[in-house]
Simulated assay, not measured.
Amino acid sequence: MILEDNIESGTNISEEKQKKLKYVKIYDALYLKIMNGEFPPGSQLPSEPELARMMGVSRMTLRQALSLLKEDGLISNARGKGTFIIDAKNNITFEQPFTGHPVYNWCSVTPEKTELEFRIEPPSESITRTLQQKTPAVVIADRWYKNDGRVFAYSLSFLPIETISKYGIDLNDNAGFLNFIQKNLYEKSESTRINIRFSGAGNFTAQKYTLSEKGHFLMIQETLLDERKIPIAVTKHYIPVDTTNINFTLNNSTI
């Protein structure tokens, strides 16, 4: 599925790039406020101008952070009324046996090259809750998928450092690490928990490249579980809607 000579770039990113993007910091701060009950389910967030002033950021940065909270199923927009906190327990996920990498299985374009960057950092509260375990460090891996020189999909993975230790992964071997997260990790998982949402966050989350001029994506959040049902990795895959081969049926209409 992935050959070593298909890697266009396989490096751990520089110290400068390790600095968190501003919208991620705001996302983390708002996530914590929601989890701590400062913004309880059913409550309304302050208006965008007011919330941006409270957080000390521009409205653009705030909107990017809110897009990630919406992906997490924590907020919902009511046209003409505002943004409301919703109960994450009501989010729908489904668990299934191993099915393989979504970009390869659910995308109409086949990757020819994969660009990889990764870093190691302490987990935020949101990452800790997503991984459903406390860990001293996580490996965060960015992957950009290219066909005919064009980037068409992006994946963002979170691996607890225990996963790296358990499977004896050498992070100095970039080709080996990429092959592990693209292929071997799926073979080692017992099952996969999937959550699929429509998203507008693909382009700014991918950072380095514009994935789609239209800006409409499927965000496939994939949690790979071991035999104890403990996550060994969580990945958000962003695939432009017009390049996915998944059909959705809502109210007897296929989209």
Rank of each mutant, 00 (worst) to 15 (best):
K25A: 11
S43K: 08
F204Q: 07
I2W: 07
Q64N: 13
K19W: 05
A52D: 07
L131I: 10
S126G: 10
I127M: 09
E213P: 04
R119V: 06
P240R: 03
I161D: 00
S199G: 13
K20P: 06
D72G: 07
E162D: 14
N247K: 12
L74I: 13
E115A: 12
G10N: 05
F158A: 04
V241I: 15
A153G: 13
V241H: 06
P111Y: 11
G215H: 02
F84C: 05
I140E: 07
Y104K: 08
I255W: 15
Q133T: 15
K229R: 13
Q64L: 04
L62D: 05
S76L: 10
L250F: 14
K229Y: 13
G80Y: 06
I196C: 06
N147W: 06
I13C: 09
L74K: 11
I26P: 01
E222H: 00
E8I: 12
K20S: 12
M1C: 11
S155K: 05
N6W: 10
Y167S: 02
K70Q: 15
G82D: 12
W144T: 01
I220W: 02
I194C: 01
K183L: 12
K134D: 07
D28R: 06
E50H: 09
G82H: 11
Y23H: 15
P97T: 09
T223S: 14
I85G: 02
L211K: 01
L116S: 02
Y154I: 05
E16W: 01
S126Y: 08
T210E: 14
I239W: 07
I127P: 00
H237P: 01
C107H: 00
Y186T: 04
D242M: 01
